Structures are given as structure tokens and as C-alpha cells.
Computed example of a mutant assay.
Amino acid sequence: MPPTDASAGPGLDPALGPGPALGPDPASPEDSEDSEDTLALRLPDGFGALGDAAAPAGPGSAPAGELVGDVAAWGPAATPVGLFRLLPVCVERDLSLIHRWMSDPVVAAFWELAGPPVATANHLRSQLDGDGRSVPCLGLLDGTPMSYWELYRADLDPLARHYPSRLQDTGIHLLIGAEGRGRGLGSVLIRAVSDLVLNRRPACSRVVAEPDLRNTPSVAAFLNAGFRFAAEVDLPDKRAALMLRDRSLRDVL
């Protein structure tokens, strides 16, 4: 399963990602009132349009019917380590690079996409040929590809069965390639990407991630990026930390 790498520094697992569906997590009082367990069901006709139409339009915001939005139009983010931007994947252009990252033993242990390039290609195309609920992207720092990201509608993912999801919750999966590893970039880039999500998706009230609980540097990177620890959850292959970054707390944490 793909994971979420929050490479905060040397020795951190560079690929910690979504993993399988989370185990049951009792809703807190503040979450339960407006939670939506949307599961991984077929979307009713017009659902995407209704969901995004409710949000005020803004630069790079999602056109009606798009579930994550036009990520290519989101533009760059200035960070303390350089100019960062997300570039939606083109399989023909990017497969060789992404496959090389996926074949790194440290990454492969979490993403499970080592092997022939077709495995990586199928993983990418399953998103690109889907309904838009997951968008695979390269992360470019000062124009150089150095990370891989997946932005997805967590409320439309199987993950939503196992935590008190809200409409428009947006999840992130990531890995940092060897080019960017060991530089303490994890928390900076996680904050940059979650800020882009919150800025460009006004209907999204929080960003979701679930790093492996054993990877304390990764959990620390999410905390340093403004996420809060919500719960410990059992997955088939790991115990994970459910991390949330709330729009209402983004200027506090």
C-alpha cells in the first residue's frame, strides 16, 4: 500500500503512507456532530459538482465536478528551503523517475511497488483514469523533482469507514526521493502542501495523514507541520498515528 513519508531528517523512513483502512476510531464530541461516513461508494450523479459548488471560488479552486481540484493551477509555494510546487504526474514523462524511487528498498518496504515498472505505471494510471478523487503529483523544489505526493478525497476513500470523516476531508500520501532525503525537508514540505490544500480547497476543513506510529521522526514532522495527533489506529500491517491539520488551527499550530 502507498505510504506517507515525512522525511524530517537522516534515518527517517522515506515512505510512510496511507496503508490499509484504519481501525475503528470513536468520534469525539466535536467531530461527531457533522461527521460523514461516505465510504468508498459510487458517487451519485452531480455529487462532485454539489460538493465543490458550495465553496467560494478562488484561484485554483476546484471547477464543478472535480473532486480534488485543478492541482496544476495551484501555483508555487514559497518555503524556507526554496520554491515548491506540485506537478500532476504524466506517466510517459515521469514513470522512470517514480519507479526508481519506488524501487528504493526503504521506500519499497512501505509502498510495495518495487519490481517491474508496470506495477508503478498501473498504480499511477488507476488514479489518472479514475474519477478524480486521487491526484498523483511530483513535488518540485526550485524546479527539481524530489518527492512524490498523492492528494485524495479522504471522505470518499475506504479510510472514511474508520474515522469520523467530514465532507471534503483531503488526505496526503508522500515519499521523498533520495535527492531530497537527509535534509530535514519533511515538515517544511508537509506544511507547504497542506497549506496549498487549505488555500485552494476552501470547502476542505482539514487535511488527513496516517504515518506509522513507530516512525517517531515522521510523527514529529507532521506535528511540526501543524498537524495534531488524533488517535492510534490498528492497520493490517502497522499501527498508525492518525494526524489531522485543522483549518481553524492552522495559524496556531
Rank of each mutant, 00 (worst) to 15 (best):
R133I: 10
L95I: 09
L22E: 01
D129V: 11
Y152P: 00
A209F: 05
A220M: 08
R191T: 02
R85C: 10
F227N: 13
P14V: 03
L86F: 01
P44L: 02
P26Q: 06
R228T: 09
S165G: 08
P105N: 12
R245I: 01
L159S: 05
T38P: 03
L124P: 10
L83N: 13
S61C: 06
P18D: 14
A231M: 01
G143L: 10
G11D: 15
R201L: 11
L113D: 04
G11K: 12
D157H: 13
A108Q: 05
E30F: 01
V219Q: 00
A221H: 00
D251R: 09
L189M: 14
P105I: 11
R201M: 15
V81Q: 01
L159A: 08
P20L: 15
I190F: 06
T38G: 10
A77T: 09
P105V: 11
A108D: 13
G171N: 10
A154D: 07
W111F: 15
S205M: 06
S134P: 07
V207C: 15
D5M: 07
E30V: 01
E30A: 09
F227Q: 12
L39E: 15
P136F: 12
A40W: 15
D25L: 15
R93H: 15
A55D: 10
G58V: 04
P217C: 06
F229T: 02
L223P: 05
H123S: 13
F110C: 02
L249R: 07
R100S: 15
A27K: 05
V81N: 06
P2Q: 14
P105S: 14
E210F: 06
F229K: 01
D131N: 12
A54S: 13
L185W: 14
F229C: 01
D234Q: 14
L41S: 00
L196Y: 01
G17D: 03
G23S: 11
M146Y: 08
N215S: 06
R200K: 13
P117D: 03
M243N: 02
S32E: 08
T120V: 14
P145A: 10
E210I: 00
V207D: 10
A160N: 06
I190N: 02
G17V: 09
L97V: 12
R245M: 00
G177P: 10
P117V: 07
S103G: 08
G132V: 03
E232C: 07
K238Q: 05
A40N: 13
L87Y: 11
F84D: 05
R214L: 15
